[in-house]
Simulated assay, not measured.
Amino acid sequence: MSSLFPAAPGRTSYRRSIENAFDVEEGEMPGSPDNHRTPIRLTRRGRAVVVAFIAAVALVLLWVTVGPGALAGGGESRAPSAPGETVVVDPGETLWEIASDIDPDGDPRLMVQRIMSLNGMADDPTVLPGQELRIPSR
């Protein structure tokens, strides 16, 4: 059967290319040389899901290998390894005065912070007479 429009020299006709498209083996893409597998094609959402999954697995593996000590403040809940010195608060005495007595040459602000963290005093530097405070080693 001849077509109304003759094929241009060097090109195959449209009908011929359609007939050849169905002459491929199962699982092979037309026009690909020796390709026996169909490539995986991901959408933008699919790529985002794959990247998020890989990142989550990496974070979990990092947390498992490093341990929960990697969390911010993870080491503050531990009990001291050895009993340190203690001070009993006298009436009218402040935490600032106690810190200055412990380390007269150092900065009292740093010592107050160390005493507060050692004794579990979150943000309240209030001390009561008779209260026993652990003091850090020098």
Rank of each mutant, 00 (worst) to 15 (best):
L62V: 13
P30W: 14
P80S: 06
V88H: 02
P30T: 12
L95V: 02
A99M: 08
V60K: 07
G92M: 08
E76N: 01
N119P: 01
D107S: 14
A122D: 07
T94K: 01
N35Y: 11
A70M: 14
N35P: 12
L42D: 04
I102N: 00
L62H: 14
L110A: 13
D107I: 15
R45C: 10
P91D: 04
S100L: 06
G46R: 11
M121Q: 03
G106F: 11
V87E: 00
R44H: 10
L62G: 12
G75K: 12
A122I: 09
R114H: 08
L59N: 11
P104E: 11
V60S: 13
D103C: 04
V88K: 03
G92S: 08
A58Q: 03
V66S: 01
S77Y: 11
A52M: 10
H36G: 08
P80C: 08
D101T: 04
D123P: 00
W63L: 09
A52E: 10
D107W: 13
E97C: 00
W63P: 01
P30Y: 15
G74Q: 06
I102D: 01
P33I: 04
R114V: 03
V66Y: 05
V49P: 02
G92L: 07
L59Q: 12
T43K: 15
M121V: 02
G106T: 03
L62F: 12
G84E: 10
P91R: 03
A56Y: 05
R45H: 12
L42W: 07
P80R: 05
V51G: 04
E93S: 03
R47Y: 11
G67I: 08
G74E: 14
V87H: 01
G69A: 10
G120P: 00
G69V: 14
V89N: 01
R114M: 06
T94F: 02
V50A: 07
G69C: 12
V89K: 00
G74H: 05
R114S: 09
A58C: 04
G84L: 09
A72I: 08
P83T: 09
V89E: 00
P30C: 09
G120Q: 03
V87C: 02
D123C: 01
V51C: 02
S117V: 05
P104Y: 13
N35V: 15
E85Q: 04
D123K: 01
R114I: 00
L71R: 04
A55M: 11
P80F: 11
R45K: 10
P30R: 09
P30V: 15
V50G: 06
A122K: 03
W63S: 06
R37W: 14
L95Y: 00
A79R: 01
D105G: 08
L110P: 11
L71E: 10
A56C: 06
L59E: 14
L110K: 05
R45P: 04
A48M: 05
V89R: 00
S77H: 09
T94S: 00
A52F: 12
R47I: 15
P68E: 15
V64F: 07
A56W: 05
T38F: 14
R41D: 13
W63C: 06
V57N: 05
G92T: 08
P68L: 14
N119W: 02
G75A: 15
R109I: 15
S117W: 04
P30E: 08
P30S: 09
E85S: 06
D34N: 12
D105V: 09
S117F: 03
S77V: 13
T43I: 15
E93L: 02
R44C: 06
